[in-house]
Amino acid sequence: MAAGTLYTYPENWRAFKAQIAAQYSGAQLKVASTPPAFTFGQTNRTPSFLSSFPLGKVPVFQGDDGFCLFESNAIAYYLSNEALRGSSSEASAQIMQWASFADSEIIPPASTWVFPTLGIIQYNKQATEQAKEEVKRVLGVLNQHLNTRTFLVGERVSLADITVVCSLLWLYKQVLEPSFRQPFANVTRWFVTCINQRQFKAVLGEVKLCDKMAQFDA
Amino acid sequence: MAAGTLYTYPENWRAFKAQIAAQYSGAQLKVASTPPAFTFGQTNRTPSFLSSFPLGKVPVFQGDDGFCLFESNAIAYYLSNEALRGSSSEASAQIMQWASFADSEIIPPASTWVFPTLGIIQYNKQATEQAKEEVKRVLGVLNQHLNTRTFLVGERVSLADITVVCSLLWLYKQVLEPSFRQPFANVTRWFVTCINQRQFKAVLGEVKLCDKMAQFDA
């Protein structure tokens, strides 16, 4: 069973994937996210950090045995067990499919829409409107898939659910108000089922679904 | 052993990953990329295609047994064997790490730099210059890693090499002229070693490394 330390800044949705996976697998995971263990912008710029993790990005994982890993999906995979990884080639491939879907289809439009509401990037009306349409398209694909399913792959939680839930967190917390998410009831049912799992709650705490779409923070 | 059909347009670097994986694993793979089997922009918009592949993007895979998969990394994984997937948790996680690295660190700056030279997107001087710097950073990370290694993970070709080689194809063919790639000799040695493997050559044919950096196609 894997054991080691996850270095990240606090409240990092990319790190949540690994933390939730460890809750399911029982992997012994320490999280270094605040001083003195880890100071974002300093620790990850030190020569010793960069010699193991040359991109200088977080999250990164360092096993008690010295095994080093970067890229959040790889870390979440390493800290998982077979139940989360998929017990057949088909299941493992489908889990990988949804993890890729989260990174390539959800994160770009979700960030374009949410970041201006947090004051992180400049608001751009056209980009935001296009991102909203992209998010609708993506939620439509998920809603269709979840029409007859409780979880994304197979009959129980897998890395697919963990990865996609974490990629949707900011959307559900910040902008998916009830009227916007109404057409995607299967997705919201699935999302709430997941975040209410003990292992998700242990990492995410109470996740409050947004009741009023946040506007950009001028 | 998996068997089925890959739907894509011709010369799609994302589809190459699955095709090369099948060369190594012996999976029976048919490629539908030209009429009448497949016409990009038409077939992938038909209701029957969209019912199996709701994103309408390619490549997609349909097994002879009806098993459907989208997202190129998932398809390449499904068509692989254990040697390509990694024979331990550590190896599999490292392979996943490099596949994520390709998608998140290589593709964005590579597309920004190469697309204008192909006439795919408008040239933007600042974006191109920034992309060149990111490509240098990424090649530096790879060059460091390959300083003491023949392949990215373990002692033989894996999905990591296949995925990263395919994500670098356009760069090496279009803009990485000798003077630009000179500081990254380990990467070029590794890249040439891979494309000269029989299984890569069977799919890619002769890959000619660029000798003059292409400029944007006004």
């Binding site: 990005k57 439009p109 | 347009y9 011709p10 922009g41």
Partner: peptide, 30 residues
Amino acid sequence: AVQYLSQEKIWFEKTQYDEAERRFYEGVNG
């Protein structure tokens, strides 16, 4: 969390690039 999130590198233009690539290859493939 917001302060850290601003350090994340996101490919905001990915959708535009996907669209441009699709149009290009639809053109190439008639």
